[in-house]
């Protein structure tokens, strides 16, 4: 059941759902849910949302209205019940120490839950403008926007020059494919090796069966975003073949 709904930025919503305690126990950062956004037959398939965070017996997601599925969901009111599958997929492999989180736009939506599980961290956050810049509490944050409406003006890659890569024990990267590819390619090799990315793909089932959500795999072939991921070692993805997917 939807127990909270807030438009946190124009066209960007935070929804809170009441869930079971077994759900909460399995809701590791980076995992996702499949939501049946409509009670009617259309949209036919569910829509995947990364788990943003969990509180007590509720789970939060953050999403932008980008198509019909998210449009229908955004129009749904508190008190309605929606069928929810999850938590699904594989989340972040956590290790102790300081983490670097790099988020582009809505890619940072899963970071609140991750923040709660790591010892300490630094967040580099980029967005097109202030209107698209999420607030992730509890982390030292350096923000940059393409139009300069908040933080520095520029692209997230402009922040990478001053990063002391060897001071982090883990790196989480999530955002649009071109942004993730550019960031990954600018990293020194040891940093690439400790980077995990949260990938995104159009999904069918969400539980590993339909093979709809393929992500190009380094060395050839494909990974299933829903069940091999959505969190992958950045090195396991073939970034060249990812171009133009979305």
């Amino acid at each position: 059941m939807i127990i909270g709904k807030e438009e946190i930025l124009p066209g960007i919503f935070k929804f809170e759902f009441k869930v079971s305690s077994s759900f909460i126990a399995e809701a590791e950062p980076g995992r996702f849910i499949q939501l049946e956004v409509s009670h009617g037959p259309f949209p036919v398939t569910r829509r995947p949302f990364t788990i943003s965070s969990t509180y007590g017996k509720s789970v939060e997601i953050i999403f932008e209205v980008v198509g019909r599925g998210t449009e229908v969901l955004a129009e749904t009111d508190v008190g309605r019940s929606l069928r929810l599958l999850g938590p699904l997929g594989r989340g972040y492999l956590l290790n102790p120490g300081k983490w670097l989180l790099i988020g582009g736009g809505l890619g940072a939506a899963g970071f609140p839950g991750l923040t709660a599980k790591i010892d300490s961290g630094l967040l580099l956050l980029g967005a097109a403008s202030r209107d698209k810049l999420l607030t992730i509490p509890g982390l030292e944050t350096v923000a940059i926007t393409e139009d300069g409406s908040s933080g520095r003006k520029g692209l997230i890659t402009d922040l990478l020059g001053s990063v002391r890569w060897d001071s982090f024990s883990g790196i989480a990267l999530c955002g649009p494919v071109p942004m993730m590819k550019a960031v990954f390619e600018m990293m020194p090799f040891p940093a690439q090796a400790i980077t995990q990315v949260s990938a995104e793909a159009r999904m069918g089932c969400g539980w590993g069966v339909c093979e709809g959500c393929s992500v190009p795999k380094a060395g050839g072939g494909f990974l299933k975003c829903c069940s091999d991921g959505p969190v992958f070692q950045a090195e396991s993805i073939d970034w060249e073949r990812c171009e133009g997917i979305h």
Binding site: P43, V44, T45, R68, G69, A201, R202, G212, S214
Partner: peptide
């Protein structure tokens, strides 16, 4: 290995797949 992605897209009244 199957087709390159995107392999699946939902339209207004149904689902297209090319797995």
């Amino acid at each position: 290995e199957g087709n390159p992605p995107p392999r699946i897209i939902e339209t207004r009244f149904g689902l297209l797949n090319s797995i």
